[in-house]
Structure formats: C-alpha cells, structure tokens
Nucleic acid binder design. Structure first.
Length: 424
RNA sequence: GCCGCCAUCGUCUAGUGGCCUAGGACAUCGGGCUUUCAUCCCGAAAAUCACGGGUUCGACUCCCGUUGGCGGUACCA
C-alpha cells in the first residue's frame, strides 16, 4: 500500500514548536516507506484566520528541511468539492439541512473502533454517545470532520497522522467514511505535548513559534532531533541522529502513549551538541548568517574556536564575545572579587611587562612572563590571569584569555589596561 | 457530569512474565583536567515501576478497580 502523509495545520498563527513534531513524524513515516509527504492548510474557519500564517508555516517547514511534495493544498479553494459531497450525503439520506447548515445523521447503535497505529492499541466508542453534527456550515465552508474525510480520501492519505485531540472524533469520521462508501484509512493519534506544569503546551511555556527558536539560534537539526525523541526512542538507542537516520528507524508503533513534557534544557543541550559537532568553518558560516548586523563579521571566524565549547545557541555568541569589539564598561566591583591586594600596583607591573614584550605577542612567552611576575609578586598565577582578564574584558568570565588577547591586538589590550587603572 | 486516552527517577525514556535488588540521556550535586567559564572524563544522588486487588511457580510487564493527569463534549481546528 502506498504511503502518503500530510501535515494539516490550520493557519491561525505562527507554527508552534509542538506542531512540528506532528509534521516530523508524518515526514518520517513517508520517507521510511518511500511515500510522499505533503502540506494541506486547514483554513475552513474564516474567523480564526491569521494573515501571514501560511507563509510562516511554509517557511518554517523549509527551514527545518521537512520538504513537502508539490504546492500547499488550501481548503478554502475547495469549497465546491465539500459542498458537492455534503449534498451527496443529503441525497443518500445520511445528512439533512437545518438552519442553513448540513448535519450528518449519526448511527446511534453498536460500537465504533479502530486499531490505532500509535502503540497498536484498540480504541472503542459506544455509538449511543454520538450526536448528529454539522459537516457544512451555513457560510458554506466545511467543518473539520467533512474536510478531513473528503480531503484525505481524495489525497489518498494513508496513514492519517494527527494529534490525540482528535481521538474523540473518530466515530464521526468513520461514520462519514462509511456513508460515502469509502474504505477507512489507518489512523495514528499522537500524544499531546505538555508544558512543565503538565498542562497542554502553550505560549507561556515556551511553546513559542518555531521562528522564535530560530531567532535564539537553535539549529533546525537539533530541534528536529529533540522533537523526535519526545515520545520516541530509536531501536538503536542513539540520541543524536540525522533526519535520514530517524527515517530509517522510525516506527509509529514505538511512539509512547503518554503525553510528554517539553524540556527546553534538553533541547539546549542537544543544540550545543550539534554546535560542537560542526567544523569551525561550518560554525563560522552559520554565525555569519545568523548575526546579520554584526559589526565585525571578519572577527567571527577567529573567535569561533574559542567559543565553540561555550555556546549552546548561536545567540550565546553575542554576550560571550562583545568585549572583543566593544570597549568594556568597567565596574570596580568585579575587581573587588579578585584575590589580589594592590590591584593598581599589579596592573602597573603588568603594563610594564606588556610594553617591553616583543610584538606580536607570543602565547608561550606571554604565559611564562606573567607566571614569573606572579611569583615575584607573591600572587597565584590563576589570580594574576584573572586580573588581566578583568582588566581587558571587564568580566570575570570570558573565553580563553590568551586567544582573546590575540584577537584584540596588542594596542587595544594596553589601552584597556590603562583605562582600567583609572578606576583607582 | 458524560465519553475517551494515559500512568517507570524532577524531565525524556529502556523494559513486551523470570536477564530488573529497574538501564540510559537531560537537569542536579561531587571530583578530575584547567588562567576564568565551558568542553571533556570520572562518580553520586534520584523511581516502594501511581495505589489496591487479582492471574501466575514468578509480575514494571497480563486482567479488574481506584486515584490522578490529559483530551473531547462548538456552524474551532
């Protein structure tokens, strides 16, 4: 049986981080089975339409590398099809018009059940609980139920993969398929992702639009990898895997049935993992793309090796390196934390050494010189370097000192230390 | 309320009747490396497998119930 999956979001806003797991799993199922993955926009509720969301959805999928087949299918352009099908049901006697809308006449006896692909479990409903429901609204647009059944039949979707919030609607859909005389597709209902407080993941939990994650410097590969593991573990047990590897190992049966909690800390760890696995050249390129208005783009490359192990997101680059191109604002409180008694005197000695040192400064000689100076002054070498660090950067924590100094250049270092001395 | 789904460390999970006095990852804590911070390495703490009944020679694993969480209950998706 040919596998065709589709991601079917409604354009009521930017694409949510939670929503992309559904898209990802649909994509993986298609790829694993040499099937196709497409995009359908469920814009049958005109009141909730948010302008720009279709573009956002398309761009986000592209950015993530979840390539879909062909053009997005817009339900709003298919109203005639839904109307036609609704009419057919009226003619058959399975539906009726009331208050300008068309209602489906549900069967009230017996049971309706499916075997869900997620976990391979049986889900069953008593038909006596099923009320008649609207399939075509009075504005001529279909409700989700009609649109789903008609579209997924016409698009030959199989399996239908969607969120677990649709489980309760299963009887509606199966009855509709039956009324049309169509074969029922296989279904997979994915557990709903929760926020840290265990309520449905929403904006206040950091279920920000994917575009926000992009803005923070999360990498698409890391986002995908993390989302894949939210509720699923590959048989190989691997934690870090590419889209291709995921597709090979993925199986809906193995998806956990419980609702997973979104954990930003683990996503950050994974993003850092991806950053560290990049070559310096790749990271440099990523950063240059990411930091569009950076004042010193040519200085990004040399600073990459010293920050690579220190950032989890691309945006972390900024606070870590801004002292390299911006003159620091000194705060005497930072110096007070150092374990050195007479800081000004120590800084004078340091300057003396720097002025007489051969340029360009050599890292080995630099280190040796100040270790010796530290000994002469009765200061620990570590404290000595911390003093230089703060004098050069204004901060207690920076990337490696010697490398930072090399990027800054001799003149700048000297002038900064002179400036720092002005504090006393 | 009614209907449905679910239930292993704080979080993501491994586990499909004996290999589990429950394994891994993130986070946390401690140590090593080290000019700071990270990275990296080592280690620790962390789950009476929600609870109660069965079934079985034997249950984290099967069944029932309870509790709890989540979803649905719209001319929203």
């Amino acid at each position: 049986m040919e596998v065709k999956t589709r991601f079917a979001p409604s354009p009521t806003g930017a694409l949510h981080i939670g929503g992309i797991r559904t898209a990802l799993y649909e994509y993986l199922v298609a790829k694993k089975n040499q099937g196709t993955f497409s995009l359908r926009i469920e814009d049958s509720d005109r009141a909730r339409l948010v302008e720009g969301s279709v573009e956002d959805i398309v761009q986000t999928l592209e950015w993530l590398g979840l390539d879909f087949e062909g053009e997005p299918v817009l339900q709003s352009k298919r109203v005639d099809i839904y109307k036609e099908h609704a009419k057919k049901l009226v003619e058959k006697g399975s539906a009726y018009e009331q208050d300008g809308a068309i209602y489906f006449k549900t069967k009230k006896t017996g049971k309706t059940s499916i075997v869900d692909l997620v976990g391979n479990r049986k889900i069953e409903f008593d038909n006596s609980t099923q009320d008649d429901f609207v399939i075509l609204k009075s504005d001529g647009y279909p409700t989700y139920h009609l649109a789903h059944v008609v579209d997924d039949r016409l698009m030959e979707t199989n399996p239908v993969i969607r969120g677990a919030e649709w489980i309760s609607s299963i009887p509606k859909h199966l009855m509709l398929f039956e009324a049309f005389g169509w074969e029922v597709p296989r279904y997979a209902h994915l557990p709903i992702i929760l926020g840290p407080d265990k309520s449905k993941l929403s904006k206040r939990h950091g279920a920000k639009p994917v575009s926000e994650f992009k803005k923070d410097g999360f990498l698409p590969e890391a986002i995908l990898n993390y989302m894949a593991l939210l509720g699923w573990t590959p048989p190989s047990g691997k934690e870090i895997l590419s889209l291709g590897e995921m597709a090979e190992e993925f199986d809906l049966k193995g998806v956990n049935l419980a609702n997973p909690v979104f954990d930003i800390a683990k996503l950050e760890w994974m993003n850092g993992e991806y950053i560290r696995r990049m070559s310096d050249e790749q990271l440099t390129e990523k950063l240059q793309e990411f930091l569009v208005d950076h004042p010193n783009k040519d200085k990004i490359a040399p600073s990459v090796p010293i920050i690579k192990d220190r950032i989890k997101k691309l945006a972390d680059f900024i606070p870590l390196t801004d002292f390299l191109w911006e003159s620091p604002e000194y705060d005497i409180a930072q110096f007070e934390k150092l374990n050195i008694k007479n800081k000004k005197e120590a800084l004078e000695k340091i300057l003396e050494q720097l002025r007489t040192m051969n340029k360009p400064w050599n890292t080995e000689i630099f280190e040796k010189t100040f270790r010796e100076l530290a000994e002469e002054e009765g200061i620990k070498a570590g404290d000595m370097f911390q003093l230089i660090r703060v004098a050069v950067s204004g901060q207690l924590v920076t990337p490696p000192l010697f490398e930072s100094i090399r990027i800054l250049g001799e003149e700048e270092v000297v002038s900064r230390i002179e400036k720092a001395m002005g504090l006393w």
